[in-house]
């Protein structure tokens, strides 16, 4: 039985070790901001932070998380998060919204490592996050906007 933290709180779940983190978050912890889109790490809708790095929760069995720190869209904090969400709202990135928790996670992951990404850096970091509404033009712009806010 794995013990880890989710958004800073200790969590021990009475579910099998092979349960994907995605479903543990949603079904057991009712943290529904993390979304299911494909189940095979192709779309990125389920992206969370594990030990500070973006991770696809749909292919992460909770048994591999002993001692890990998990952050979801409900609990993630910091200047990059505020900047990304402000930029997202600022230019109305979301359409249907289903992928956007994952997009925000990946964008935060990028900006934490690279505060001034180029278009190519953004493509490289964000190519794992599908947006079926194709809000990509605005995602790219919003990441630049967030980088500007962080710099300013």
């Amino acid at each position: 039985m794995a013990t880890f933290t989710v958004n800073g709180k200790d969590v021990t779940l009475e579910v099998p070790d092979d349960t994907p983190l995605l479903w543990a978050l949603r079904d057991d912890l009712r943290l529904t901001g993390t979304k299911f889109g494909c189940g095979i790490a192709q779309c990125g809708a389920c992206t969370v932070m594990v030990d500070g790095m973006p991770r696809r929760s749909c292919v992460t069995p909770i048994g591999t998380l002993d001692g890990a720190s998990v952050e979801t869209i409900e609990g993630i904090e910091g200047p990059e998060v505020e900047a990304v969400q402000a930029a997202w709202v600022g230019i109305d990135v979301p359409q249907c919204g289903w992928c956007q928790s994952g997009q925000v996670m990946s964008a935060v992951g990028l900006l934490r490592m690279n505060p001034a990404p180029t278009d190519e850096d953004i493509d490289n970091a964000m190519a794992g996050n599908v947006c079926r509404c194709a809000t990509y033009v605005r995602i790219r712009q919003a990441i630049h906007d967030a980088a500007d806010m962080l710099e300013g």
Partner: peptide, 26 residues
């Protein structure tokens, strides 16, 4: 500005899959 951009950027927007009822089965 769109009325739903904030809730769709911070994970609070509620979709069908996010509905849980007491004793619910999947």
């Amino acid at each position: 500005p769109k009325v739903d951009s904030r809730s769709k950027s911070d994970g609070t927007a509620m979709f069908t899959m996010d509905v849980y009822r007491d004793g619910m089965e999947t």
